[in-house]
Amino acid sequence: MLINWYKFTIYKRTHPKLFWGVSLSLVGVVYLKAWIPLTNISIPCPFHEWTGLYCPGCGVTRVILSLLKFDVIQAFRFNPLLFILAPLYMLYWITNKKHIRPLSRAIMAIMLILTVTFGILRNLPLFEYLAPTVIR
């Protein structure tokens, strides 16, 4: 019994990121797949509630719900920026880990410019197709 407790404490001490990552992921899946469908209560976007405009992150919860249903096209319609930022972030993470600072900073600047530009464009009438919409 003492040996098993010792192994558990070593495991918990050496893998806290894994433990917290799995725990938060499970809470997120329960929130998305159980809480929202049962109660129809979700966390609204404060920026959209206060201004009536779409922020660059509007539609992210619906993207995740669509991806959990393997509906990639609908997920893309809710927020196409995530599909552009995800590979850029992976590239940023790799260059930052390898200490390639000029390239990682340039990638971060590109991601910031894309996010701000997307946030502005999705609120203009000419680019209203960038707003979160449901495909019927």
Rank of each mutant, 00 (worst) to 15 (best):
M1F: 03
I3H: 01
N4R: 09
N4E: 10
W5T: 09
Y6T: 12
K7I: 11
T9F: 10
Y11T: 01
R13E: 06
T14A: 12
T14D: 11
T14H: 12
T14V: 08
T14N: 14
T14Y: 09
H15Y: 09
P16D: 08
K17L: 02
K17S: 07
K17W: 00
L18A: 12
W20F: 09
G21I: 06
V22I: 12
S25K: 04
S25W: 04
L26A: 13
L26W: 01
L26H: 00
V27W: 03
G28P: 01
G28H: 03
G28M: 12
V29N: 01
V30D: 03
Y31S: 06
Y31R: 12
L32A: 11
K33Q: 14
K33A: 11
A34M: 10
A34V: 12
W35E: 01
W35M: 08
I36L: 00
P37M: 14
T39I: 02
T39L: 08
N40E: 05
I41A: 14
I41L: 14
I41K: 12
S42Y: 12
C45D: 07
C45Q: 02
C45K: 10
P46N: 07
P46T: 06
P46F: 05
H48R: 12
H48Q: 11
W50E: 14
W50Y: 13
T51D: 03
Y54V: 11
C55L: 05
G57W: 05
V60K: 01
V60E: 02
I64E: 06
L65H: 02
L65T: 09
S66L: 03
S66C: 09
L67R: 01
L67S: 01
D71Q: 14
V72F: 15
V72G: 05
I73V: 14
I73T: 10
Q74S: 13
Q74Y: 05
A75Y: 01
A75T: 04
F78D: 06
N79V: 11
N79A: 06
N79L: 13
P80D: 03
L81W: 02
L81I: 04
L82T: 09
L82D: 07
L82Y: 05
I84K: 00
L85E: 05
L85M: 06
P87I: 02
L88T: 03
L88Q: 04
L88M: 11
Y89I: 13
Y89G: 14
L91K: 00
L91G: 09
L91W: 10
L91S: 05
W93M: 07
W93A: 09
R101E: 04
L103V: 12
S104L: 05
R105V: 07
M108E: 12
A109C: 13
I110N: 00
I110A: 15
M111C: 14
L112A: 15
L112D: 05
I113S: 10
I113C: 13
L114Q: 07
L114C: 13
T115D: 02
T115Y: 01
T115R: 00
F118E: 06
F118A: 03
R122N: 07
R122M: 11
N123P: 04
L124S: 10
P125V: 05
F127D: 12
F127V: 04
F127H: 11
E128F: 02
E128S: 15
E128Q: 14
E128D: 13
L130H: 04
L130F: 10
A131H: 03
V134L: 06
I135S: 05
I135N: 00
R136V: 13
